[in-house]
Computed example of a mutant assay.
Amino acid sequence: MENTTHFGFKQIATNDKQSLVRDVFNSVASKYNLMNDVLSFGAHRLWKHYTIASSNVKIGDKVLDIAGGTGDLAIEFRKKVGDNGQVILSDINAAMLNEGRKNLTNKGIFSVEFVQLNAQSLPFDSNTFDCVNISFGLRNVTDKDQALKEMYRILKPDGCLLILEFSTTDSVFLKKIYDFYSFNIMPKLGGIIADNEASYQYLAESIRKHPNQETLKDMVLDAGFDFCEYHNLSGGIVALHKGIKV
């Protein structure tokens, strides 16, 4: 029997997910930053600022930003590590990586490296990085458990994993508003602004299929991390998980 997984609310063959996700991000790459601002009312910038502030990244550190897309976080990590540090911006999607390269170049930042990779098989030696970050990307990974094990492997002892992702709110009132917005407004805005309603329908569905806060915390610990905590942002619509490798 063929292995299956979810693509939004659809069940598909596991081997098909990567290409379907690639098609989604190929289609939205050029409008990605604009849509983030519109759909989150700018809140994504506050969520990312909180992530950077929670990272404990310091001068001289090595940072890997997985699914880094247009490079918002890589820019800030670059400031924190200084001239002696290293930041690698990575993404599985070439179109998104190209947008990141253009974005950093336009801001005069040339000291970030770019690597196209799959989070399930990271092309780095064990114990290489002080910090690994993945923001709004883990829900698109086919085998999340394998990806988390890889992130654990490449982190140095005392290294930090940061996962910023949409999550689950406990507020019944907020959930009703958020569900209505996600399935009735968000795809329509995607159609109007990015000329791609279907991709934003998938993105709304993918959020609902992502593990909740406690489940993801357990997954991080099961991957080998000795410590994991999470902080809810915007009432739990978004959560930041922080794992430490001892």
Score class of each variant (00 low, 15 high):
residue 2 E to V: 14
residue 2 E to D: 14
residue 3 N to S: 15
residue 5 T to R: 11
residue 5 T to H: 14
residue 7 F to E: 10
residue 8 G to P: 09
residue 16 D to H: 14
residue 18 Q to M: 15
residue 19 S to F: 08
residue 20 L to V: 15
residue 21 V to H: 08
residue 24 V to A: 12
residue 24 V to F: 07
residue 26 N to H: 15
residue 26 N to D: 14
residue 36 N to R: 03
residue 40 S to Q: 08
residue 41 F to L: 14
residue 42 G to C: 08
residue 42 G to I: 02
residue 44 H to I: 05
residue 45 R to F: 06
residue 46 L to V: 01
residue 48 K to H: 13
residue 57 V to F: 01
residue 59 I to W: 09
residue 64 L to M: 13
residue 64 L to S: 08
residue 65 D to E: 01
residue 68 G to M: 01
residue 70 T to P: 02
residue 71 G to C: 01
residue 73 L to A: 05
residue 74 A to Y: 02
residue 80 K to I: 00
residue 83 D to P: 03
residue 83 D to S: 06
residue 84 N to S: 13
residue 84 N to G: 10
residue 84 N to R: 12
residue 85 G to D: 00
residue 86 Q to R: 15
residue 87 V to C: 00
residue 87 V to P: 03
residue 88 I to D: 05
residue 89 L to D: 03
residue 91 D to R: 04
residue 92 I to E: 08
residue 94 A to N: 11
residue 94 A to G: 08
residue 94 A to H: 10
residue 95 A to L: 05
residue 106 N to L: 05
residue 107 K to E: 00
residue 112 V to L: 07
residue 113 E to D: 15
residue 115 V to L: 12
residue 115 V to A: 09
residue 115 V to S: 04
residue 116 Q to M: 12
residue 117 L to V: 15
residue 120 Q to A: 11
residue 121 S to Q: 08
residue 134 I to A: 05
residue 134 I to W: 08
residue 136 F to R: 05
residue 136 F to Q: 07
residue 139 R to F: 09
residue 141 V to L: 15
residue 142 T to P: 13
residue 149 K to W: 01
residue 156 K to E: 01
residue 158 D to R: 04
residue 162 L to G: 09
residue 164 L to T: 05
residue 166 F to P: 04
residue 167 S to K: 00
residue 170 D to G: 14
residue 172 V to F: 11
residue 173 F to Q: 10
residue 183 F to N: 11
residue 184 N to L: 01
residue 185 I to W: 07
residue 186 M to A: 10
residue 194 A to R: 05
residue 197 E to G: 04
residue 198 A to D: 15
residue 198 A to P: 05
residue 199 S to D: 06
residue 206 S to K: 06
residue 207 I to E: 02
residue 211 P to A: 13
residue 215 T to D: 04
residue 215 T to P: 06
residue 221 L to M: 15
residue 222 D to W: 04
residue 227 F to E: 10
residue 228 C to A: 13
residue 230 Y to H: 13
residue 232 N to D: 08
residue 232 N to Y: 04
residue 233 L to S: 06
residue 234 S to M: 07
residue 234 S to G: 03
residue 237 I to T: 07
residue 238 V to Q: 10
residue 241 H to R: 10
residue 241 H to C: 11
residue 242 K to V: 10
residue 244 I to R: 07
residue 245 K to S: 01
residue 246 V to T: 11
